[in-house]
């Protein structure tokens, strides 16, 4: 356990000892802030049918930031270690592969959540500056953070897997972006295709991240969504573990 915590701390601090981690956080906050402000500017003084925070997660801005920031965080997890030659040193230490995989994943997820955390202040910031706003309902804010954490854990696991496949950070980032975008677009089909009876439509709704995030931002926590993300996270972490294990074949 101590080795796992030490490794996780090492992974997390790696983001903060260089300028890169701060640049990533600043980039995330810049994109989110600009998107949120654009939405506020568009809705100012106009009646609309859902809370502005809910509307924000229903726009493309949120997804753009999510899909772009994930590769930036995870591309270095294994690829950089392989490129700099520290990977073999790490793997020959008396630490199991499972611990390495989990520590790198937890470190990346913790950094991801830190990068998003300032966005939790947006509803309160809006409440402070806007007139005629209803009090902030803490439930949907908490559910939204839970949704971001679940989405993040899935994308972090996917990114770790992509990074474990190559020694090039660019290739790792592109792979993460491509698979992440593909899965997102698959779920997006349920939005553009009118609902029809049948298992195909049910499957599309089940994997639709837009639908999941819509529920979370309304304050609805559905165990199906939680299972979906946790099972996929576990699956990609398992794949990463197998990839690390495969070095013994060579």
């Amino acid at each position: 356990m101590r080795a796992f915590l030490t490794l996780t701390r090492r992974e997390l601090t790696m983001h903060f000892v260089s300028l890169t981690g701060y640049v990533v956080i600043a980039g995330v906050q810049l994109l989110l802030g600009q998107s949120f402000w654009t939405l506020l500017d568009a809705l100012n003084n106009k009646p609309f049918d859902m809370p502005v925070t809910e509307k924000f997660f229903d726009t493309g801005f949120f997804w753009l930031v999510l899909l772009l920031v994930t590769p930036a965080i995870t591309m270095r997890t294994y690829a950089q270690e392989r490129a700099t030659g520290t990977f073999e040193t790490l793997m020959t230490t008396p630490i199991g592969e499972t611990q390495v995989v989990l520590a790198k994943f937890c470190g990346a997820l913790a950094f991801f959540m830190i990068a998003w955390l300032p966005a939790a202040a947006y509803p309160f910031l809006l409440r402070h500056y806007a007139e005629g706003m209803a009090p902030v309902d803490a439930g949907p804010v908490a559910a939204t953070l839970l949704g971001i954490a679940l989405l993040g854990s899935f994308y972090m696991a996917l990114g770790c897997f992509a990074s474990s496949l190559t020694r090039s950070q660019i290739v790792a980032a592109m792979t993460t972006f491509a698979i992440g975008l593909g899965l997102f677009l698959l779920g997006y089909l349920s939005q553009i295709r009118p609902p029809e009876p049948g298992w195909q439509a049910q499957l599309l709704v089940h994997i639709s991240m837009l639908e999941h995030m819509r529920d979370f931002s309304r304050g609805i926590v559905d165990t199906r969504h939680i299972f979906f993300y946790l099972s996929l996270t576990a699956f990609f972490l398992f794949l990463t573990h197998r990839v690390l294990e495969s070095r013994r074949w060579k």
């Binding site: 309902d137 089940h206 609805i220 926590v221 559905d222 199906r224």
Partner: peptide
């Protein structure tokens, strides 16, 4: 796991809305 999750699930509202 996902198939079972879709059959046995709970939907909880963390809101007064």
């Amino acid at each position: 796991a996902n198939h079972l999750a879709t059959r046995h699930y709970a939907r909880v509202a963390w809101t007064d809305n």
